[in-house]
Design a protein around this nucleic acid. Sequence first.
DNA 1: CCTACCGATCGGTAGG
DNA 2: CCTACCGATCGGTAGG
Lengths: 203, 203
Amino acid sequence: MTSSKVGVRSRADVVAAAGRLFAARGYHGTSMRDLAKELGLIGSSLYSHIESKADLLVEVVEVGAELFQESADRAMATTGDGVARLRALVAGHVDVVLDHRDEVRTFLYEANALDEAHRGKVLAARDRYEHEFRTVLQAGADDGSMRADLDSRTAAIFVLSVLNAIERWYRPGGRLSRPELVEEILHFVMGGIGTDLASSKSA
Amino acid sequence: MTSSKVGVRSRADVVAAAGRLFAARGYHGTSMRDLAKELGLIGSSLYSHIESKADLLVEVVEVGAELFQESADRAMATTGDGVARLRALVAGHVDVVLDHRDEVRTFLYEANALDEAHRGKVLAARDRYEHEFRTVLQAGADDGSMRADLDSRTAAIFVLSVLNAIERWYRPGGRLSRPELVEEILHFVMGGIGTDLASSKSA
DNA sequence: CCTACCGATCGGTAGG
DNA sequence: CCTACCGATCGGTAGG
């Protein structure tokens, strides 16, 4: 927190500001002059810290990808049955989304503004992450802590759909605390909204 | 299906092409020259059909909003208990998403490129739509076809999270047919992935 | 629906 | 980190 007229502290500040703007207006909706203004600079001054706008997007998206991967790594190290590890995955995901909204939004929604090579890397990272969920869900089906006939592929997609949407509606300080949010999600994902009796007889 | 060199048929063709490009590259990632090329025209030729780029986004997004609203209206006219009407809402939503992917994507992800007035209208339309889900979920809780202690506000968000994510992963002609998709969603949403016994005891 | 064109803005560089 | 500047592209108009 130095005086705001002394200049930008580092490349990391530029990347962070880029994350903010990419998340709010999108990559193509953000100009380098917008970004410079956010930092109290003039457009051309950015280029002493970074190489290009495209490079900036790569950095922000990679931060998002790494945060999710690190979270998954920690969760997978959890001991316990499928449900216990799913809880760890969900809680970790919630933390990443709420503590790094800008990078998460950019990771989720701006990846197709990347060049083909980097977009491929990001899609691969998403696949790996989704695969961790599938592994845990299959483990749960096998160890008896989840429905035995569960389709882990589809279930992983559904669970991640709920998790990735969080940043679109959750407001910190609202009626749901963060731990309550985690519980609500687990409750929904594990038990659904049907009665305990009616839940099996659909169609 | 006239010869492709005779020129564009109507304003609706321009709007449809705009939907395609806005969905694929985003509003700010699409130039009027891109759009013209998609129709076999030159940039300036578009302006005999439309007023402005911003206007085009409004039209595409409004089509998306109307499709969802009409679908909800039909579903709400269904007789039956909460579960029956939820089924109708889900099936209708799946149809809208899969039959109008471009307009849906643009509606979901490009609304913040709208001017403030139109963005407000779109957010209001989303709120109305979400409210229909809440109504049906509360009805289900009251009529005994769903869990009695269900929080309809949160549940509506979770169900819509699953539904809105469909266009991000579902591929027609893949391993899941459309009716199977609807059943998978209902099964997940109603019963979750827990065992019938374990589903209640989370935390 | 095209030709010809407009002012504004884009990402980025040279040089200090 | 700024001054001064670049060629390219942007959304859009006049006039036919």
